[in-house]
């Protein structure tokens, strides 16, 4: 699945350059049939809902045009900015640790000489990611409770003796980042590993002959050459991170509400829709997230020169 994702990323680049050549004489090809199921699902469950939330966000309950009132109303809600703050802190911790740790892990795995060890490690990295979302967070509910946790001594040392102390508000961004890292990082390591493999071995070989150390090779050759893949990882991690929902929602339920059910922006949108019956406000918050994601993604794309052809 991970390799597939990577292939898609690169194949879209190939396709982009390919379509330039055949501009003007369009006819269906095998490739179009391959993407057809994906595109139709995307339209049904991606594009149409987004358009519908745009409609909802700019209308009131009766469907009349409401301008930006849904946006101002939700942004002035007393829970909005705390939620934005929570997600922002979480994102900083998660994105920085993701980039640094995933890149170093990938480089290390790539350096390992034994083929068998490599295969084993790659498989081990992938296992947590294979657990479906909510169930992996459920697992963490046990890990975070010092009474039943296999890492209880560590928890007691750095967080507290009781579950309630472990999930104190100041610990939450770190906890969510650790959960996100544990469930997601393995998959990202594989993506970057795949990218490292595309670097021609003669380039590395030449550097080695010139006396470059592994660190030097990593910094001057490998990192610049997989820059696009790192950008790609960052974009997806950012998009997923801003949509933080499952972790705080489940921990909120497990803590009987000590972690509030409006901790993240997405949870707040959920509260608007289902506690306040305010679907328009909910859609406005969802659009806020989309806009932030789009702006940040464009920055990443521009800075990481994602769409440049080599």
């Amino acid at each position: 699945m991970t390799l597939l994702a990577h292939e898609r990323a690169t194949s879209s680049e190939v396709e982009a350059s390919g379509s330039r050549r055949t501009a003007g004489s369009w006819r269906p090809r095998a490739g179009h049939f391959f993407v057809l199921p994906y595109v139709s699902l995307l339209v049904l469950f991606g594009i149409i809902p987004v358009l519908y939330s745009v409609y909802l966000a700019f209308t009131d309950v009766d469907g009349a045009f409401a301008g930006f009132s849904n946006f101002t109303r939700t942004a002035s809600d007393y829970r909005f900015w705390p939620a934005v703050g929570h997600v922002a802190v979480y994102l900083v911790i998660w994105l920085v640790s993701l980039t640094v740790l995933v890149v170093s892990l990938t480089l290390m795995v790539h350096q390992i000489a034994s083929r068998r060890t490599k295969t084993f490690i790659r498989f081990a990295y992938y296992i947590p990611g294979a657990l479906a979302g909510a169930s992996s967070v459920l697992l963490w509910l046990f890990v975070l409770d010092p009474t039943v946790s296999p890492v209880a001594p560590i928890l007691k040392l750095i967080a507290g003796d009781h579950f309630a102390e472990v999930i104190a508000p100041s610990h939450l961004p770190w906890i969510f980042a650790v959960i996100a890292f544990w469930t997601g990082a393995g998959g990202w390591v594989l993506v970057l590993y795949g990218a490292l493999n595309t670097i021609p071995s003669d380039v590395i070989e030449a550097a080695r002959v010139d006396g470059a150390s592994p660190v030097r090779i990593a910094l001057s050759i490998q990192l610049p050459m997989i820059r696009k893949s790192i950008t790609y990882v960052l974009i997806l991690a950012f998009a997923a991170g801003t949509q933080l929902f499952v972790e705080p929602q489940l921990i909120s339920q497990a803590s009987f509400g000590v972690v509030p059910n409006d901790y993240s922006v997405n949870q707040l949108a959920y509260q608007f829709a289902f506690t306040q019956n305010d679907f328009n406000g909910s859609a406005a918050i969802a659009l806020d997230l989309l806009v932030v994601s789009l702006i940040t993604t464009s920055l990443f794309v521009a800075r990481g020169r994602l769409f440049d052809t080599d």
Binding site: T2, A9, P49, S53, T183, L236
Partner: peptide, 29 residues
């Protein structure tokens, strides 16, 4: 656009928000 990368996400749960949103919107339609 945002949906495209989200659905490709490997390890992380991709469809969390969209699922909530889709559920909400399906009702709305």
């Amino acid at each position: 656009m945002e949906m495209v990368p989200t659905n490709l996400t490997p390890g992380r749960r991709p469809r969390r928000a969209s699922r909530v949103r889709a559920a909400a919107l399906a009702g709305v339609v």
